[in-house]
Design a protein around this nucleic acid. Structure first.
Lengths: 194, 194
DNA sequence: GCCCTCGGAGAACGATCGTTCTCCGCGTTG
DNA sequence: CAACGCGGAGAACGATCGTTCTCCGAGGGC
């Protein structure tokens, strides 16, 4: 037998893939069991219920997202480049063949109305992303109002790419972000109303 | 008894409200029957299956959305004002107490991976919105790349408002749209690189 | 007035869900 | 070596799903 920690990890990883590909409610616990190779008894010893597993999957996705975002932006030297690197990160994500939109948005749409725990986990992740963008904008010296605008571009690109089935939205969002960054820089240098 | 047309309408309207509030899979056909006041036998005479009903609900939502968008933007006189009116329309929508995000995005996240019919209906609606924005941008004389950027702002505002539970995203998206419109106008008048 | 058809209410059916329980084999301890 | 506890496989359970069927009462044609 394997220890609890790696069993948990296997279950979460398998459930994550299945939930993301087919939606949460369409995946039965039997499918999770088969994919993870962990018995149902064990799964229910590690997680109190399917809802618990869903939340654990969302927290795992948060970690994966945070790590991917960090590694995508750390190469850039300036704050502006780091902000634009977010959209390059989205672009490469949208190009993956199994891309099916943002798991947090999808899960929130499916269960956010009934499960408060799910809604909370999703809200937390999006708030963390907003805070990350806000930090970059602050580093840049941009106005505080710029950060939510950039975050909205990133969110919109994700849903647009998921529904259209093309990665174009990343480029469009990146171009819009550049325009917003330019406008902020211009306001900063000339420092006045038009 | 009532005629088929109004029975259909009642079923679609009731299903729409239930699906939007709780998610599609969480609503049984019995609940639709009770809310619509139409017998299950009749429902299955009007719709071949639940999937059929889901698609009919999405088409109905498309009509409601189109009508709301048209009435919100028709008062504005210039193309720029009509574009910005989209975000005012979103703002008033986000403030409704039963707002729970964009039904198309939610349904696509829940079923788009398994049902091609649902994915198609959602794609159609989003493509129509993109085309509508593109028409306004053309009317404005803006560059063609501007339209997808504005559409992405609208999409991002919807998911952000749904998850955060606040209507702030509409204002942020509107402000970003103004910046993008200003930048496009500036390029148009001075007509050159920076 | 009688029959016949049609639609409404909801029971019934098979499938599947989340969750628990049973059975069995294996490894450990005294 | 024998008794025992623990985990794995999967059957079992009650609930609920989408869909169909049965029963029954109301209303129009002869």
């Amino acid at each position: 037998m394997i220890d609890d920690t790696s069993a948990r990890e296997q279950v979460v990883r398998a459930a994550d893939e299945l939930f993301y590909a087919r939606g949460v409610q369409a995946v039965g616990m039997d499918a999770v069991r088969t994919a993870a190779g962990v018995s149902l008894k064990r799964i229910y010893a590690l997680f109190a219920s399917k809802d618990d597993l869903i939340v654990a999957v969302l927290r795992h996705r948060t970690q994966v997202w945070d790590a991917g975002l960090a590694s995508a932006t750390e190469r850039a030297t300036t704050a502006r480049e780091r902000i634009l690197a977010i959209f390059d990160f989205l672009d490469s994500w949208f190009r993956q063949p199994d891309f099916r939109g943002c798991a947090f948005i999808n899960t929130n749409g499916e269960l956010g109305g009934s499960s408060e725990a799910v809604a909370d986990a999703v809200r937390e992740q999006k708030a963390a992303f907003q805070a990350y963008v806000a930090r970059l904008v602050e580093e840049l010296g941009g106005p505080p109002g710029l950060a939510p605008q950039l975050a909205i571009l990133a969110e919109g690109a994700q849903t647009t790419a998921a529904i259209a089935g093309t990665p174009d939205a990343a480029e469009h969002a990146r171009a819009a972000a550049e325009t917003l960054l330019d406008a902020a820089a211009r306001l900063q240098t000339v420092g006045g109303s038009h």
